[in-house]
Design a protein around this nucleic acid. Structure first.
Lengths: 249, 249
DNA sequence: TTGATATAAATTGGCGCCAATTTAATGGTT
DNA sequence: AACCATTAAATTGGCGCCAATTTATATCAA
């Protein structure tokens, strides 16, 4: 009698499973989002992307479907895919979720801190402080990497995935609600948190991380006003110009 | 001059965005997984699914791609899609993540408890205790709904999404590592937690939730042994039958 | 000019076909 | 009888084509 293969995959004989996360097109789009080159509301045309990345339209289609599943892109039937624009409530939820996850990862890192983790933390901070300050795009990528690194060091693959998704969605929230021209976060927040982690000061590190997230969130326009960038009335109201009546110069 | 539409979607004129989560095929597969009718490792053939759900193969393909993005299904090139089988480490990470998220949601629910939330909690418990005990499949779906309900009541859409994903992945972890025939969790765990929530006993509720999750996790075979169901040697070793040498009856 | 209407262009959605690969079946060999 | 090579069947992967819908352009009336 034969071993009876049933409905299961064979014993690791075939090729490895394929994820969409290591796809160059996906990485390219995600990197562009985290660097705020791609802003919420931007249309992602299939032909355009296929031409830019030099692939087929079917490949682009799969990539967009994946990004829709990851809440990075919205899909309107017969109209196409657009970079997702979070709502005000969703932006608040994202930051609340980050507070939960990142305080946990920070605490975990402090608990199981070893020489290798110390080295990686110091190495990242040196890169973050020592890089070219004028290169705004590299700068944005590095600040996101700090939070990702902490999640990596915590050693929980599930929480790491969540952290990565939250960092992306934070980028979308910032790009949607930021007041134009303000920096994303103070330049010394990450070194402060890192020092407290390295010192084993758990309470201090947690407080610093919470303050850091509060600071980022409070820099945004999360009032009750509609955040639609196409709403020019709200835009000029923000600057202090009330809508004039008909016929008035 | 024209309003210059630029690269943004129009002002809510078109159709609503389309998510994959309300797709009947997706819901059907997820429900089958949470009820443990679909076990990890099962092959999801495209033609087979298309015939079962009476749709096209392209639709099934999109559904499978979505489930791959959600870590519910693995995709082997040229071989097809299979229900994902978590590793031992991943199962532990899932439970650790659940402890983080669910203690948070429980605490939040207690903080903002109102009459409507009390009613929904009581209603669920009455359904969970009063349903037909022999209907094992309805039972499994209800126990998952309890944790989802708490996440809903917490009011954070992001954490709710995470909770839903974790419940699915927990089902996969249980189906992969459970000792066959044991119940998923003790029948009075949810009423106990609910009572403490309704009483406003935050410390007690958190402790009870942690104990509940510990209980579920410790019911699993998360030792160092390889969990491959196709490894019949390990299976019989678990029962106490050592592999015989060649030629022995 | 402003607004609405009709026509044309562009984009997405979906179906069918066929190549590439894997899996099952067949037959021969030790 | 077990094992290996070969052949046949089945399944997935991908490309092209065309219908459906949306978006842009042109035309005309107020």
């Amino acid at each position: 009698m034969k071993p009876a293969r049933k409905d299961r995959e064979t014993d690791a004989a075939g090729t490895e499973p394929r994820t969409m996360d290591d796809d160059p097109v996906v990485q390219g789009i995600l990197k562009a989002i985290s660097q705020k080159r791609l802003k919420p509301g931007t249309k992602l045309g299939e032909d355009a992307l296929a031409q830019v990345f030099e692939t087929t339209r079917i490949h682009i289609r799969q990539v967009l479907a994946h990004l829709v599943s990851r809440h990075i892109v919205t899909h309107f039937p017969n109209r196409g895919a657009f970079i997702y624009r979070p709502t005000v409530q969703e932006a608040r939820d994202i930051f609340a979720a980050r507070r939960v996850l990142e305080t946990t990862t920070v605490a975990t890192v402090i608990d199981k801190l070893d020489a290798d983790m110390r080295r990686k933390l110091k190495q990242h901070i040196s890169r973050e402080t020592g890089h070219d300050r004028n290169d705004r795009w590299a700068s944005l990528a590095l600040t996101a990497d700090f939070h990702i690194l902490i999640a990596e060091l915590a050693g929980n693959s599930v929480l790491l995935d969540f952290a990565k998704e939250l960092m992306l969605r934070t980028s979308l929230a910032i790009a949607t609600f930021e007041v134009p021209g303000s920096p994303d976060c103070s330049p010394d927040a990450h070194p402060v948190i890192t020092d407290m982690i390295l010192a084993g000061d758990k309470a201090g590190a947690l407080a610093a991380m919470n303050r850091h997230l509060d600071e980022i969130e409070h820099r945004l326009h999360l009032g009750a006003t509609a955040p639609d960038p196409d709403d020019i009335v709200a835009i000029f109201q923000d600057i202090g110009i009330a809508p004039a009546r008909r016929g008035v110069a």
